[in-house]
Structure formats: structure tokens, C-alpha cells
């Protein structure tokens, strides 16, 4: 279980999340819905240990995490994969897709890395030709598949998708959703964040409204 309890977070003086609780269960897709600017992305980043919180706790499989970003233990950060809204912004323009996917695997064990990249390429339908291209030479959908492959390269227990399909066309959205569903069926706990309720209804196992997760508006969604 990936849980956030009583999370308070924001940007400088501006508090976006006022005491929010959230649980991500292995093997399920948890949808998180809310209008633009409501703090969905902030919560996703807090849960992925990328954004500092001023109060509250995040626990990964029972281990409470102190700090965020570089200060959070690296092995806990690796337990949670993250997929961002814009695949273009989330890939270094100087790297080929192969390098993007291989980044988390490091250069230490070469043959194992190559094998894992080949596995991921097959799982996410990336041909050899695509792997040798740069981000500007592939479509948004192909690039987002590479980002998804990178996020799960180290077999994280959890995956956070922050508006991962907002920039994509319907077909590509369906492809990404299908791939993420496959990961969830294999045991990954997924947090899918979106402003599109229709999308989350079709994609997630259950949909939460960010508004209801605040302590001051909490309802019995936990059932």
C-alpha cells in the first residue's frame, strides 16, 4: 500500500492541499479527479516523493518516508514510477528513446540492461527503429510509451500517471490506458490523475474526487 495521510502541501505561501488522505492499492487503478488548479498534480507529486509537504506522512509498503526529492531515500523513490503530462517535456531532447528507457537501468550491468530494454520495448510496442530515434522524430504517443517504459523499467510497485494522456489523441489515450491496465493486472498499484471523469470512469477501478479527500470534506469513500 502507498498511503498519504494528512498531507499539507503547496508552493511557498500558497497552500494547495489542506490535510489530504489517499491510498493506492497494489493491483488496482485508483482514479483521482478534480478540476484544473485543484491540486491533483501536487498530490500526485507528493505521493511520488517529488514534492515537499509541510505536514502529513507518506508511507510506502509500511515504511514512512522522510523528505522528498533528492532527500527521500533513492530505493523508495524507485518503488514509485511516474509518468508526466507532456512526454516532450519529460524526455531530454538529446537522448534517443533507447537511452531514455535505459536511464534508470544505469550502465553497470551492460548485458542485463540490453536485455531489459528489449523486454520493455516489446512490452510497450517500440520497434528497434523507434528506439534509435530522438524525441522530436517520434509521435507523442510513441514518446509517451517510452516514458511509460522508463517509469516501469525498475519494476516499481506503484505507478503515478499525472494527466499522462491529457495531451494525447483518443486512440493514443486508449493505448496508454490499455498498457497501464496490463501493469495493474500484473500487480502494480496505479494512481491515475485526470480532469476527465469520462476517461477515469472507463480506465480506473474506482474514481476519487480530490475535493472529497480533504479532511474538512471527507466522506466515506474508503468503502
Amino acid at each position: 500500500m502507498l498511503t498519504a495521510t494528512g498531507v499539507v502541501a503547496g508552493y511557498g505561501e500558497h497552500t494547495v492541499l489542506r490535510s489530504v488522505d489517499l491510498t493506492v492499492t497494489p493491483g488496482r487503478i485508483t482514479g483521482l479527479q478534480g478540476p484544473s488548479g485543484s491540486g491533483k498534480s501536487t498530490l500526485a507529486r507528493v505521493v511520488a516523493l517529488l514534492h515537499p509537504r509541510t505536514a502529513g506522512t507518506v508511507t510506502v509498503d509500511g515504511r514512512s518516508v522522510t523528505g522528498s526529492g533528492y532527500l527521500a531515500p533513492a530505493e523508495l523513490r524507485r518503488r514509485i514510477g511516474m509518468v508526466f503530462q507532456s512526454p516532450r517535456a519529460a524526455t531530454d531532447p538529446r537522448w534517443t528513446l533507447r537511452q531514455v528507457i535505459a536511464e534508470p537501468l544505469g550502465a553497470a550491468r551492460r548485458s542485463a540492461t540490453r536485455q531489459r530494454v528489449a523486454e520493455l520495448a516489446e512490452q510497450f510496442q517500440l520497434t528497434d527503429d523507434l528506439l534509435d530515434r530522438y524525441p522530436h522524430q517520434v509521435s507523442d504517443g510513441q514518446l509517451q510509451r517510452a516514458c511509460l517504459a522508463r517509469a516501469v523499467a525498475l519494476r516499481p510497485a506503484y505507478l503515478v500517471c499525472d494527466e499522462a494522456t491529457a495531451m494525447l489523441d483518443p486512440s493514443t489515450t486508449a493505448t496508454i490506458a490499455q498498457l497501464v491496465r496490463g501493469l495493474a493486472d500484473a500487480g502494480t498499484g496505479v494512481l491515475a490523475v485526470s480532469h476527465d471523469r469520462a476517461l477515469l470512469t472507463a480506465w480506473a477501478d474506482h474514481v476519487l474526487d480530490l475535493h472529497d479527500l480533504h479532511a474538512d470534506a471527507r466522506t466515506s469513500w474508503e468503502s
Binding site: A74, R77, I80, A90, D92, E103, P104, R150, A151
Partner: peptide, 15 residues
């Protein structure tokens, strides 16, 4: 502050 740096951090990357 780009997302790809954030992605590296999320994958356990150090400074």
C-alpha cells in the same frame, strides 16, 4: 525544473 529531471529524481537519481 524540467520534467525529465524530475523523472530522473523519481527513478532514484542523485544530484
Amino acid at each position: 525544473t524540467r520534467d525529465y529531471v524530475l523523472a530522473t529524481v523519481s527513478l532514484g537519481g542523485s544530484r
